[in-house]
Amino acid sequence: MTMGTPRREVARGLLVSAVAPFVTASRRPRSADGPEGAGTAFDEVYQGRRIQGVPVTLGALDVAWHVTVDGHPLHLMRRADGSWLSMLDHYSWFRTPLEATRAAVDELGPLRRLRGAGHDVRA
Rank of each mutant, 00 (worst) to 15 (best):
G34I: 10
P110T: 07
D70F: 02
H72G: 03
A18E: 08
R28V: 15
D70H: 03
T101Q: 00
V67F: 02
V63G: 05
D120C: 12
R50E: 01
G118M: 05
L74P: 00
L88K: 06
P35E: 15
Y91K: 11
H75T: 14
P35F: 15
T101M: 03
E36T: 13
A100P: 02
L98V: 07
G4Y: 05
G39V: 04
V19N: 04
A103G: 00
A103P: 01
G71W: 04
P55H: 01
P29C: 10
G118T: 00
A38E: 15
A103I: 10
M87L: 13
L85P: 01
D70T: 01
R113K: 11
R8D: 10
Q52I: 00
S86T: 05
S31Q: 13
V23D: 11
H75L: 15
L58Y: 08
P29V: 08
M3V: 13
S17K: 12
R30I: 12
A123N: 06
M77G: 14
M87D: 06
A11C: 06
H75F: 13
T2V: 12
V105M: 04
E99L: 11
R28W: 12
R28D: 07
V45L: 04
M77R: 11
G118Q: 04
R113L: 13
R8E: 11
Q47D: 09
A11L: 15
D70Q: 05
P6V: 12
P73M: 11
L111E: 12
A104S: 02
G53Q: 01
S86D: 05
Y91T: 12
D62N: 09
P110K: 09
D70Y: 02
A25W: 02
H119R: 11
S86P: 03
S92I: 06
V63E: 01
M87Y: 04
E107Y: 12
R30M: 09
S83L: 13
L61E: 12
M1V: 08
V54N: 05
Y46S: 03
V10R: 09
R122F: 10
P21G: 01
A18K: 03
T2W: 07
E107W: 13
G53L: 02
V10P: 03
H72W: 08
A38L: 14
L85E: 02
R8K: 15
A20L: 13
G109P: 00
R78D: 06
A25M: 06
P73W: 03
D43S: 05
F94V: 09
D120A: 14
